[in-house]
Computed example of a mutant assay.
Amino acid sequence: MTGAATPSRFGEGPLSRAAALVYTLLVVELLLVLTTAPGLVALALLDRDVSNLPLVALCAVPLGPALSAAVYALHHQRPDLTDLHPARVFWRGYRRNVADALLVWVPLLVWLTVLAVNLAHLPSAGVPRWWAVPLVLVGAGSAVLGAHALVITSLFAFRLRDVVRLARFFVLRTPVVTLGTAGLLGAATALLATSPALLVALAAVLALALLRGGDPMIAQIRKEFTA
């Protein structure tokens, strides 16, 4: 006869793991809001005008390191309810990744701002309206590439040029990840346009979705490009 199954210790069952995830998401959400608060406040005070697009990008600068720290904290979260330190892990990720995250995030913001300004001024520039299609496609591709790069730099210690190469490589290598990231960015853009407050409230959930969607890419990088 086989022996009875060993019961799970407290903190290791499915309900405990779910509670641990919810608690981690709440803490990460709070820290995301805290670290991006200056930009959020300034953004709320700006008029919705095309001329303010560069200022909108400036307000979004703190989001890069904060999102990187959130991805790091969620990736390193412990499923054991009795051993949770999400705030400590978030700040460790923030300190570890802030410089590299900015190197990825700021050029992406500048490039997307240039595209957005050009899109906004197409009629006044006398450019055919169909030019909006390639500009939007370039912007979407750049955003997906930037999201890949941010996830990679959040979890691995590669040089910037290697991060960019890997991000570009995995856009085609892992199409499921690319399509999932594109869909997630599309949803975030729709929320930004319709309910910015809801987007802020769901920031940690979106960071988790970005991380989980990128699992195949993360696994391949760990297998093929790390010792």
Rank of each mutant, 00 (worst) to 15 (best):
M1P: 14
T6E: 07
T6G: 01
P7G: 04
P14R: 06
L15R: 06
S16T: 08
A18Q: 08
A18P: 02
A20W: 00
L21P: 03
T24Q: 00
L25P: 01
L26R: 09
E29S: 13
L30E: 05
L31P: 07
T35N: 09
T35H: 10
G39W: 07
G39I: 10
L40R: 05
L40K: 04
V41D: 08
A42N: 03
A44G: 15
D47Q: 12
R48K: 12
L58V: 15
A60K: 03
V61I: 15
L63S: 12
P65S: 05
L67W: 04
L67R: 04
L67A: 14
S68L: 12
A69K: 06
L74V: 12
L74N: 01
H75L: 05
H75V: 08
H76M: 05
Q77I: 08
Q77E: 09
R78L: 01
D80Q: 00
L81T: 00
T82G: 02
T82P: 00
L84S: 02
L84E: 04
H85P: 01
H85M: 09
A87S: 13
W91E: 03
W91I: 11
G93P: 12
Y94H: 14
V98F: 13
L103R: 15
W105L: 10
P107M: 04
P107Y: 06
L112T: 15
T113K: 01
V114L: 15
V114N: 03
A116V: 08
A116E: 11
V117W: 08
N118Q: 13
L119V: 13
A120S: 14
L122Q: 10
P123K: 07
S124T: 15
A125F: 14
P128V: 09
W131K: 01
V138A: 14
G139V: 07
S142T: 15
V144H: 03
L145K: 05
H148E: 02
L150S: 04
T153C: 13
S154M: 08
S154W: 07
L155G: 05
F156L: 13
R161D: 15
D162Y: 08
V163S: 03
V163G: 01
V164S: 02
R168M: 09
V171P: 02
R173V: 01
P175I: 06
T178N: 08
L179C: 08
A182I: 07
A182D: 06
G183H: 11
L184G: 14
A187G: 14
A187V: 15
A187N: 06
L192V: 12
S195R: 12
A197W: 02
A197V: 12
A197H: 10
L198R: 09
A201H: 09
L202E: 07
A203P: 04
V205Q: 06
L206V: 11
L211D: 00
R212M: 01
R212G: 00
R212N: 03
I218Q: 03
A219L: 15
I221S: 04
